[in-house]
Design a protein around this nucleic acid. Structure first.
Length: 643
DNA sequence: AAAAAAC
């Protein structure tokens, strides 16, 4: 066993040493694996089975001298000219956006993407993936239609001649990508449009009919809506590129149906050659088979810039977990952390000002805690501005919140997972996750809102003791350290008043919660009973949220829940069923009807209940799958948690 | 009763 590992490793190193040469092993397959760093054991098997043309690139300081091909890799944007990238595209980057050097990720992926092959790229968060897929896509359009390099090429643009579609899992991310794309094409005749839900469709259509569209950046629902409506005029018969940003999320079951629908409106790849680009910081095992519907399994490149056994987060972002005694300790601990970090960073020119994203598990908890900390901040000059964002806001409010936070020097954004992926808020100093994240991938993406573009940052994870074993199970192989410095985390706030010192933050939270709209507390309480607290069984969860309601929020008794909900919970202790008066009051009140109106789409329904089901494995094609499986960072998932 | 994503 040991021996064979060594042998296999040796063979990989030999391949690596050959470096640049294309090793045509099997005539059948020509998929290329580009490992951006030293190949690992696990790469070996995949290379054997895939039998591709193999090219290794090495970027690490400790790596051997660059191979011919590494030297060939263009690393300055200006040098993209030598690869035939159009001057006007290059100039938009170097003159307009003032970028000179590519990040290693951009270098790898742009160089690969320009080949026209399908690309699957995995790279750490905050390393400039957007530019990495936009540049090849725009260049491809300019090659197909050279007159589009000039502004008067715009005149020929029409809304039924879309050449590239970029899909994003959230509206804000689509808007952000659209902005970036517009900057890149500003010297050319290429036209970019954005299509996302929650905005006025007719306005978008009028503009698109008037200006035309070559690159459409969209969320799946709105794109499907546009394509399925023949009267929209939107069409893509000559589509040359399809890009899925946050590819693993896009390939997840929640988007699957919609994506299949969309594919039906796009030309067949056999008739119209199309480059597909899948980008994400996380490429877990189970999306691998799904990707095969989109990429050409015989001819794609896997550009992996995270080593197989490497942690896919930034080493320069320290990460801490704070185990809190109960749920009631979490908000006081959050407040203590904010106060401490605000004080530490204030008037220290060597560190970023305090600018934090606080991630919460449900929209209701974002609404509640956002309102709570907003009140605190209004009565405390030291506390930064508090902003909230989640999908139950109107799109106007969402956009405003995102812009507000983007521009802020110091602020706290209370957020659901709408902003977890891809959002580029500059200079975020802290990412604070409240409760165990839904999974390891989401932890990584949330953390990726800080430490972007080589800036510093730190990650905090506040969980209750009852969640700790679940967190350990779901977050293996990440450099998370246990932190016990915060006094609020460990005190017992449920004990009868013994005169023992309870930190002031508990009273601060309570005094604000006392004046809050009761429905905010009630909805946050109720939402905990859904599936967000994965891994916590029913009775311990109810005990925990009751302690939070009484000892954290200072309520005299747990919020009442509807009879139907209580019935579904079965035989549990400690819940309070609402009386008839309470029910009628609630119906007149706010519960269920958020001010901006929630999403009430027909796709929704019980959607969340099925979400965790994966497609059957036998729907996977076998060809090439081993390559994917072996290249994912499987070792991390075997390694234990560090806290 | 649980992120998100169309009207």
């Amino acid at each position: 066993m040991m021996k064979s590992s060594i042998l296999r490793h040796a063979s990989v190193c030999r391949v690596a040493a050959l470096g640049a040469r294309r090793v045509q092993v099997a005539p059948r397959a020509s998929a290329t694996v580009r490992a951006f760093s030293k190949p690992t054991f696990s790469a070996t098997a995949s290379l054997r089975q895939l039998s591709p043309a193999i090219r290794f690139y090495s970027s690490e300081a400790a790596a051997p001298a660059p191979t011919e091909e590494t030297q060939e890799l263009v690393t300055k944007f200006a040098d993209l000219r030598s690869l035939g990238v159009h001057q006007r595209l290059v100039s938009a980057i170097t003159q307009g956006m003032k970028y000179e050097n590519m990040t290693p990720v951009q270098s790898m992926t742009i160089n690969s993407g320009l080949s026209g092959k399908d690309i699957v790229a995995q790279a750490k968060t905050g390393t400039g993936k957007t530019l990495a897929f936009l540049v090849p896509v725009i260049q491809r359009i300019l090659e197909q239609q050279p007159e589009l390099a000039y502004s008067n090429g715009r005149k020929t643009a029409s809304c039924d001649d879309i050449r590239a579609i970029i899909l994003s899992p959230t509206r804000e991310l689509a808007e952000q990508i659209g902005m970036e794309a517009k900057k890149l094409v500003c010297e050319t005749g290429v036209v970019v449009q954005t299509a996302v839900g929650g905005t006025q469709k007719n306005m978008m259509l009028q503009r698109t009919r008037r200006e035309g569209c070559h690159i459409l950046v969209a969320t799946p629902g709105r794109l499907n809506d546009l394509l399925s409506d023949p009267s929209s005029g939107i069409d893509a018969p000559k589509l040359a590129a399809l890009c899925l940003d946050e590819a693993d999320r896009m390939l997840d079951v929640g988007f699957d149906d919609e994506l299949q629908q969309i594919l039906r409106f796009l030309p067949n790849r056999r008739d119209v050659p199309r480059q597909t680009l899948l980008f994400s910081a996380t490429i877990p095992k189970d999306v691998v088979g799904l990707a095969r519907k989109y990429i050409d399994p015989q001819n794609f490149e896997f550009v992996q810039t995270v080593r197989g056994d490497e942690v896919p987060t930034h080493e320069k972002v320290p990460q801490f977990i704070v185990p809190c005694k109960g749920f009631e300790n979490i908000y006081p601990t959050l407040l203590e952390l904010i106060q401490r970090e605000v004080a530490r960073t204030r008037s220290n020119p060597d560190v970023l000002p305090f600018k934090a994203v606080v991630f919460l598990p449900t929209t209701a908890s974002v609404q509640m805690s956002g309102a709570l900390f907003n009140k605190l901040s209004r009565s405390d000059r030291e506390m930064p501005h508090v902003i909230s964002i989640h999908s139950k806001l109107t799109q106007r409010e969402r956009t405003h919140a995102a812009d507000d936070f983007r521009r802020a020097k110091s602020a706290i954004l209370f957020s659901s997972d709408v902003t977890a992926r891809g959002m580029d808020f500059p200079n975020v100093s802290h990412v604070i996750q409240i409760h165990s994240p839904p999974d390891r991938e989401q932890y990584i993406h949330r953390l990726g809102r800080t430490g972007r573009a080589d800036k510093e940052g730190q990650g905090w994870l506040l969980v209750a003791d009852v969640e700790l074993s679940n967190a350990r199970r779901s977050l293996p192989g990440l450099p998370i350290q246990r932190n016990t410095d915060l006094a609020c985390a460990s005190v017992d706030a449920t004990a009868p008043d013994t005169g023992a010192a309870i930190p002031s933050q508990f009273e601060q939270i309570k005094s604000v919660a006392k004046d809050m709209r009761h429905d905010l507390l009630q909805n946050a309480y109720l939402a905990y009973l859904g599936g967000a607290m994965k891994g916590l069984s029913r009775q311990p969860l109810i005990d925990a949220i009751n302690d939070q309601a009484i000892h954290g929020w200072g309520l005299p008794e747990p919020p009442a829940i509807p009879l139907k909900t209580a019935r579904n919970l079965g035989n549990v202790r400690g819940i309070r069923v609402e009386t008839r008066e309470e029910r009628s009051r609630d119906q007149d009140g706010f519960r269920g009807g958020s001010p901006g109106g929630g999403r009430r789409d027909s796709r929704g329904g019980r959607d969340g209940f099925e979400r965790r089901d994966r497609r059957p494995r036998d729907s996977f094609e076998k060809i090439g799958e081993s390559a994917w499986e072996d290249r994912r960072p499987r070792d991390n998932n075997r390694r234990r948690a560090t806290f």
